[in-house]
Design a protein around this nucleic acid. Sequence first.
DNA 1: ATCTTTGTTAACCAAATGGTTAAACCGTAT
DNA 2: ATACGGTTTAACCATTTGGTTAACAAAGAT
Lengths: 197, 197
Amino acid sequence: MTTEEKIFNSARIIFQKKGFAGARMQEIADEAGINKAMLHYCFKNKQLLFEAVFMNAFGQLAPQINDIFSSNDSVFDKIRKFTHSYISFVIQNPYLPQFVIQEMNNNPAFVMSFLKNENRPNPTLLVSQIEKEIADGIIKPINPKQLLMNIISLTVFPFAAQMMVKGMLQISDAAFNQMMEERKTSIAEQIINSIKR
Amino acid sequence: MTTEEKIFNSARIIFQKKGFAGARMQEIADEAGINKAMLHYCFKNKQLLFEAVFMNAFGQLAPQINDIFSSNDSVFDKIRKFTHSYISFVIQNPYLPQFVIQEMNNNPAFVMSFLKNENRPNPTLLVSQIEKEIADGIIKPINPKQLLMNIISLTVFPFAAQMMVKGMLQISDAAFNQMMEERKTSIAEQIINSIKR
DNA sequence: ATCTTTGTTAACCAAATGGTTAAACCGTAT
DNA sequence: ATACGGTTTAACCATTTGGTTAACAAAGAT
């Protein structure tokens, strides 16, 4: 592993745990086991190091959504595939959703730079497919954007609010992961059940 | 408005916008239009000022959940009342959910102190009521905690991830609020629809 | 009137923090 | 061997930041 990779991985860990404002350059250097000056040698400054980490995180999350949502499957199958693969991915990267949401809220100006990104999640295709299936009588009449919001909410929220959820429901890490495993299939069936004619 | 109230309100604004780590004592003082030393005169230090704000925020969110969830209504009516009143409240306080979630994730030790709070959301009653209605054949057999998670997810997530949602769906503030208004009733019906026998 | 308590401020301080610099290290081509 | 390029570090620096102090003002209490 190159020094640059070591720094990047350590920065990912620290930024995702503490956010941009809470992260300390020294802590990242310690985590990587190198001198603080190396951070600046490799990544110029905190902002650029952060952006590298954030872009990477976002770049992992976004394409998956597009891949599945732009396939040739029916809406129902897309929902099934999305929830399953997305939860699988996030179980492996449990800090990611909260990290992305937090930094987008704390730094709205930053959000704008992603709206132009070609890899950004683009739901227009799925929206028109939903409209078509509504017209065809496969799906009940609903606002497609509301449906999309429901899918994302049910999938992402438990991870984003992990600590609160564990605290409120009084469940252990293991029990939480067990519940997330169940959700891989249960969410899709619940959504489909509520919108099918 | 007393000086203490001015400080508290300003602190609420700044902490909710930037989080604990990102907030600056000077910025809070400026927002309140007073000298920085007054912050320490009234609230001792940053941590205690933050805790006052956080407790207040949490204290506004939590009781509402309990009030509704411990009433004598059926599960369906509880879901209807909860989603409606909760979304109404959060529309007026759109920063609250993300603030609470963020600080709970960034400071897990802090979470623990709330598990003992008498006002913490306590879902045990609702869970057993759900189990009863399942046994009575009113509700399909499901994991009550999953149902609870679904209700919270659909209600809170769009607010917690507001910036991301607006960016992804390409909607304005007004369109967002309009969608949230719709959700006051649509979420409840969607959930009920998916679990009723 | 003056003493005391409470509220308020300007100036100050020590520690933390992001960032820089100049020197040392190290493999390699000459 | 040595000169050279990129890599790495210890020491340093300027600024920011949370927090303190001592003086000042205002309002009751005696």
